[in-house]
Nucleic acid binder design. Structure first.
Length: 345
DNA sequence: CACTCGTGGTA
DNA sequence: TTACCAAGAGT
């Protein structure tokens, strides 16, 4: 294909100097790819640095407690990635003697490594000829070849995978995959793409036919659920302890910690077993997740820890304020605690 | 396989 | 305010 050399040449001169591009060890490439799933480079950079500073190799990561891994991941979202990162580290360390599989099919069997990530690692580290199709790639290929296939269809990946497999080069497949993504991230953006700076605009069907804004075709919208959370801050000033709970249910923020809470149908304080005269509202915020809009209200419980335990008849954990920095909290809880104990964050 | 998993940036 | 979506994967 005539665009390939132009694309690779552009990539070699314009690619961003990102830390995971310094050395192409599988551990570093794998870590960066997991962090970057559904995450912009700027958001993931600090987390990548934190992880490589804490863990020099896959064995060190495997030996860590999950709580530490989640704590390092705190604030990045999609925490299943952190749990699966840790699971795969254990598998590689314990069962594979620290060596990652060297091919697409075996990589894809590992927790947290799906079709995209397996292709990225296999092409970057082992020069295997497999298309890495992420959100950037869907958009670039749709525009470049004028593909009308709806990328929200469940079989869109198979369609693009097979299509790209026919046109991609036999060698330097990692550079090719990364170049497509880099182009999507810096030139061929979703809105207002910089076609005048694009090295392959001459080959771009969408550009040449003036239909850039038509691609990619994506029809399905996300359905948002509204939820109302009431959080209780139950604090003992003598011991500097407060109540928390681990979120073990199959719900958002699994395996992270938050405060004792009640979910209600409406924003109203509809909590029968904790009288309203025992609490004072100390904060309210909206927190937006992909499929959920949360209205979160915070209350200080006026009684002590013992009274709260008795009143709710639940067994909460108590932690000291000095443990906040070692406990993984979701963003809104972390923000609440950071506001309350700025010196403890 | 449709749905569910965060958080932040941008128009 | 709303909408979109980012180096996707698991169930």
């Amino acid at each position: 294909m005539s665009f390939i050399l132009l694309l690779l040449d552009w990539y070699h001169t314009h690619k961003r100097p990102l830390p995971w591009r310094l050395e192409r060890k599988v551990f570093n490439v794998w870590l960066s790819e997991i962090i970057l799933q559904q995450t912009r480079v700027n958001q993931g950079l600090n987390y990548y640095e934190k992880f490589v500073n804490h863990f020099s190799d896959v064995h060190e990561l495997a030996k860590a407690d999950e709580q530490l891994v989640l704590n390092l991941w705190q604030g990045l979202g999609y925490y299943t990635r952190a749990r699966n990162l840790h699971k795969t580290a254990k598998i590689i360390s314990n069962d594979f003697h620290g060596e990652f599989p060297n091919n697409f099919n075996d990589l894809k069997k590992l927790p947290g490594i799906g079709p995209y990530t397996a292709a990225a690692i296999a092409s970057i580290c082992f020069d295997e000829k497999v298309p890495a199709i992420d959100g950037n790639a869907y958009r670039v290929y749709a525009r470049l070849f004028g593909l009308d296939k709806d990328i929200s269809d469940s079989n869109a990946h198979k369609f693009y995978f097979n299509y790209v497999l026919e046109i991609m080069p036999n060698e330097n497949t990692g550079d090719f995959n990364e170049a497509i993504m880099e182009l999507g991230a810096t030139i061929c953006m979703p809105q207002s793409p910089k076609c005048k700076d694009c090295p392959i605009a001459e080959s771009c069907v969408a550009y040449q036919t003036g239909r850039i804004e038509k691609y990619p075709v994506k029809t399905k919208k996300v359905k948002v659920r509204k939820r109302n959370f009431h959080y209780f801050f139950v604090f003992d000033a003598l011991t500097n302890e407060f109540l928390v709970q681990k979120r073990i249910n199959k719900d958002v923020w699994q395996n992270l910690y938050d405060l004792p809470m009640i979910e209600t149908k409406t924003k109203n304080y509809d909590v029968s077993f904790i009288p309203k005269n025992k609490v004072s509202k100390v904060g309210e915020l909206r927190h937006i997740l992909t499929h959920q809009h949360l209205n979160i209200q915070f209350y200080e419980f006026q009684g002590g820890i013992e009274e709260f335990q008795t009143t709710t008849n639940q067994d909460f954990l108590r932690i000291k304020t000095s443990e906040i920095k070692h406990t993984p909290f979701p963003k809104p809880i972390a923000s609440f605690l950071a506001d309350k104990f700025p010196e403890m964050v």
